[in-house]
Simulated scan of single mutants.
Amino acid sequence: MNDTSPPSHDLSYQPRRLWQSQMLPVRNMQYHLRSWEPEQPNRDLPLLVLAHGWMDVAASWQFVVDAFSDAFTQGRRIVAHDWRGFGLSRPQVACDSYYFTDYLADLDMLLEQLSPDAPVDLVGHSMGGNISCSYAGARAERIRRFVNLEGFGMPETRASQAPSRLAQWMDELRAQRGGSMGLSPYDSVEAVAARLQKTNRRLPRDKALWLAHHWAAPDQQGLWHILGDASHKVTNPYLYRADEALACLAAITAPTLSVEASDDSLGQWYKGRYTLEQYHDRLKHIPQCETAVVQDAGHMLHHDQPEAVASLIEDFCAR
């Protein structure tokens, strides 16, 4: 394990807590893990695992980790991983599609190495929340407490959509092979930060600049590339089965906290095809589920209001 200090860039934001970086073997690749290790670990405290969302990286959790109280972090191990195809977790062989079940198996083997004998506290954002919902149902005994940050799932699908979905997937694979689905590079890290702020109007410039150094990396020509495989843009060939998702939710035994932002992300994405009301109906399948709302926040609520998110996680996991 190698100690990693904050980058020496002249940035306003300075992380409060230092992290360590390591690579772990997971299935057919090396997974990148970022951890915040206490000086004197308390093995009686559960490991806290933070799972990031789509086109994001483990470093995205730094602001929340910095906002945790000293009392909560004392003796507590906290880890965040880059999902396969994101950050520094890159498959050895290029792939043209990523599948949801791969993330489940990856998480299972990560936890087998990190906390083989004790259940963990699991926090997932967006895609990481959706993965964690399925995992918390399939491996209920491995999760002590579960916090889901805007991991809403997706609109229900019909079997009749399968032919067009498969055709779309194959069309996009062709387009990808032709180079039309790549991710454009940026001229500078400042341009990357501006891109992050364009996506999230609440993200302060100092945090955007700091995050840009972990969300992207320069090539030999000085162009900055997002640390996310463009293959993630390819449509999933498999339909989202709401009944299967509900079965996983019903199998969750861990006390669960569902957190959403005051901005209605679902309303913006799906234009009535899938609503917060429908999501709340799905939550009723979880045996023990509480809900909370973070005010003045959008989908990246852990960036917008890290103190509020940290407080919710801390209070829920410390009970």
Rank of each mutant, 00 (worst) to 15 (best):
D121C: 00
N130A: 10
E39D: 15
K198T: 04
S115P: 08
Q22W: 08
Y279H: 07
F152M: 03
G182W: 06
R201M: 08
T101H: 08
I313K: 03
V49C: 04
A58V: 11
P41R: 02
N28A: 08
S8D: 14
G298H: 13
Q30R: 12
D117Y: 04
L257S: 01
K271W: 10
A242W: 13
R319D: 06
H303R: 13
D229E: 09
D108K: 00
P41I: 14
S97E: 09
P306C: 04
A71I: 05
R16D: 06
E156L: 05
L149A: 03
Q40I: 11
H232K: 15
P204Y: 11
L107G: 09
L110D: 01
R145A: 05
P6Q: 13
Q176S: 09
C95W: 09
F146I: 01
S97Y: 11
A51H: 00
D56F: 04
E150D: 13
S311P: 00
S69E: 05
Q220L: 07
A250I: 14
D44C: 07
R139W: 14
D264E: 14
Q30C: 13
V65F: 05
L183W: 15
Q161D: 10
A80F: 01
R205Q: 12
S188Q: 06
Q62N: 01
L266W: 03
L104Y: 01
H9N: 06
C248Q: 15
L11I: 02
S180T: 09
S188F: 06
C248M: 15
R165S: 09
Y135G: 12
S132A: 14
Y99K: 13
S184L: 07
Q30Y: 12
G85K: 07
D82A: 09
P38K: 11
R90Q: 03
S160F: 12
P41Q: 01
G53K: 03
